[in-house]
Design a protein around this nucleic acid. Structure first.
Length: 603
RNA sequence: GGGGGCGUGGUGUAGCGGUUAACAUGCCGGCCUGUCAAGCCGGAGAUCGCGGGUUCAAAUCCCGUCGCUCCCGCCA
């Protein structure tokens, strides 16, 4: 080894020990005859002192060294002179008196700061020099946290008798519904592998294979547009168990989530334990989304009964037509604002729901701080005194609150709820130290696809309907609920799973409902159906988005911060310049000819 | 495919019709033996992403384009 100790471990007790350290020049302070070098490695920073008189050769090298030079320093640990200790540094009580310094490698001046936590830095620049970006403390911390999280998961599941098994990357289309990445086969010209969108089929087949408890830290691929929480390749904790019911999986997964937070990030607070459970229906009705951020309690409450008895024609007619009237209480939003400000705010909110949700409008009233005052707002006059009291009671409203009303077709009300919540969330400055997990359950087995006039699996085609809803597959598939469960944290879907179909007869019922011909199903998934005929055990499992989980644990704003080499929103790696055109010879070996539209050819 | 934001010395920002394009930091040189975001002195460094237009005059206004990013669509 080129070093005897790391840069984070030496303490007062090591005084007098001869040591060799190696690392990067984090910062250099030249005092003339005395040069201080903060030497940095993965474990920390140790101050090296170079004295012109005591070690002239080392001093000359220290004089020429610059930031990010790689140095090897020989010297002795010394307790720092009285009054010069640095309490901000773990090694701040000592320094290394250098006898000899060797330059292991030089460095050009880096294109950005590595030795300070600069708030905003152009991401394209960071990506272009990702290897330098990775040297920054924040990135080191993120990836270390990621390692610890995955290590903990492995140990936890190992202790629960799970077996880690790898599955192929070159495979076949998997049923998640996203666009596949294709890989042409040279040995079978004209045929293509698909990269797995998840190991879904394979883990089910491992259950048929008798492993009973499987897991994998699996790379998955989906060729869809990127987001802050979506990369085309991402990492799942994939796991599957045999002979379980929904509750068994949920219990174990909740224990895992709790243990991860308590062990890896004990400073984080779990908002609620056990994790609250919401039905899909309730989540949509109250939060307008199936992945609610329950750190804040703005919810849409159904007040159709009250609205229907008001004198406001829109509410009365909508309720008559079977539509709902929903109300969202925004505490204090109208308390200390002028009438002009209030009109401005509500106009903006109305524009928001028109644009984002296609709503026709957004009615509101305000609750006066002084109970003697009238309800303000354009529709206040449609509520008589008794009805007002009833409304205030139903909403738990207090003086200074703003009440927002939505009444329209359910999807518009839901989208409005979601848009309004997103708007207020951005103003709330929510605590990232709080992790609000919840389960969303009782998803519909299918969601109607108006464009293709067919049912789409709300999760995937192998999800078992709830036992009590099985009969609905024939009579009313839209009403059938799946055995699916999603784990949501702070508004992100961090995981999801279900009990799977292990019965060929049930599986065969699904295909025609989702518009798959039996012929096509046999071609793509015949091996699954066949497997179900050989003693497939009842089984179920879950998949976790590791990138999202670690992002939340790290308090990072997006998953790129917890991925060593992420892609840009355009799907590119701007360090390595991928993707890039293939050599003509590579293409001809694969019998592939390009047929690009004219504008693409110019590049 | 659509909408929004950003793009100015190496980096982070200011300037938003007429400036010698400003500030901080970094970089280079000098001084300095207890600094730790070291300090002091001096210096170099920008055709304001790119292309076009409007104007007597464009970093600034308009159009297009490229890159990064946020969102919708898409994706569980």
């Amino acid at each position: 080894m080129l070093k005897t100790h790391n840069c984070g471990e030496l303490r007062i007790g090591d005084a007098g020990t001869p040591v060799t350290l190696a690392g990067w020049v984090n910062r250099r302070r030249d005092q003339g005859g005395l040069i201080f070098i903060d030497l940095r490695d993965r474990w920390g920073i140790t101050q090296v002192v170079v004295d012109l008189e005591a070690a002239p050769a080392a001093h000359a090298i220290a004089d020429s060294a610059r930031n990010e030079f790689v140095l090897q320093v020989q010297g002795a640990v010394r307790i720092r002179p009285e009054g010069t200790a640095n309490p901000d540094l773990a090694t701040g009580d000592i320094d290394i008196v250098a006898d000899e310094i060797r330059i292991l490698n030089r460095s050009r001046t880096p294109p950005f700061y590595i030795n300070r936590d600069e708030g905003a830095l152009d991401e394209a620049l960071r990506m272009r020099y990702r290897y330098l970006d990775l040297r920054r403390e924040a990135m080191q911390r993120s990836l270390l946290l990621r390692h610890k999280t995955v290590k903990f998961i492995r140990d936890f599941l190992d202790a629960e008798d799970f077996v880690e098994i790898e599955t192929p990357i070159l495979f076949k289309t998997t049923p998640e519904g996203a666009r596949d990445f294709l890989v042409p086969s040279r040995l079978q010209p004209g045929s293509f592998y698909a990269l797995p969108q998840s190991p879904q089929q394979l883990k089910q087949l491992l259950m048929v294979g008798g492993f009973e408890r499987y897991f994998q830290i699996a790379r998955c691929f989906r060729d869809e547009d990127l987001r802050g929480d979506r990369q085309p390749e991402f990492t799942q904790l994939d796991l599957e168990m045999s002979f379980v019911e929904r509750e068994d999986v949920m219990q174990l997964m909740e224990a895992l989530a709790t243990a991860i937070v308590k062990t890896i990030t004990p400073e984080k607070q779990l908002l609620a334990q056990p994790f609250p459970r919401l039905s899909y229906q309730d989540a949509l009705e109250q939060y307008g989304t199936d992945r609610p951020d329950i750190r804040f309690d703005l919810r849409a409450i159904d007040i159709s009964d009250i609205g229907g008895r008001s004198a406001f024609p829109v509410f009365v007619e909508n309720v008559k037509a079977g539509k709902k009237v929903k109300c969202m209480r925004v505490p204090g939003a109208a308390g200390s604002v002028s009438g002009t400000q209030l009109r401005k705010i509500t106009r903006e909110l109305e524009a928001l729901v028109r644009r984002r949700a296609g709503a026709k409008g957004l009615a509101y009233i305000t609750i006066p701080v002084d109970p003697a005052d009238q309800l303000r707002g354009p529709i206040g006059k449609f509520f008589n005194v008794d009805l007002k009291l009833e409304l205030i009671e139903a909403m738990g409203a207090e003086g200074g609150d703003l009440l927002l009303f939505m009444s329209d077709d359910a999807p518009i009300v839901q989208a409005s709820t979601d848009a309004l919540r997103a708007h207020f969330k951005s103003q709330l400055d929510l605590d990232d130290n709080c992790l609000a997990f919840c389960w969303v359950i009782d998803f519909p087995e299918f969601i109607w696809d108006e464009e293709h006039r067919r049912w789409d699996p709300s999760q995937h085609m192998f999800t078992m309907p709830l036992p009590e809803d099985l009969h609905l597959l024939d009579s009313d598939p839209g009403a059938a609920r799946g055995s699916q469960y999603d784990l949501v944290c702070n508004g992100y879907e961090v995981g999801g799973g279900s009990i799977r179909i292990h019965d060929r007869a049930i599986q065969e019922k699904i295909f025609p409902l989702i518009g798959q011909t039996m012929e096509h199903a046999m071609q793509e998934f015949g091996h699954m159906l066949e497997a179900f005929e050989y003693g497939a055990p009842p089984h179920g499992g879950m998949a976790w988005g590791i990138d999202r989980l670690v992002m939340l644990l790290a308090g990072a704003p997006n998953i790129r911060e917890v991925i060593a080499f992420p892609k840009t929103q355009g799907g590119a790696d701007i360090m390595a310049n991928a993707p890039s055109p293939a050599e003509p010879q590579q293409l001809s070996e694969l019998f592939i000819e390009l047929d690009l539209p004219p504008e693409e050819l110019e590049h």
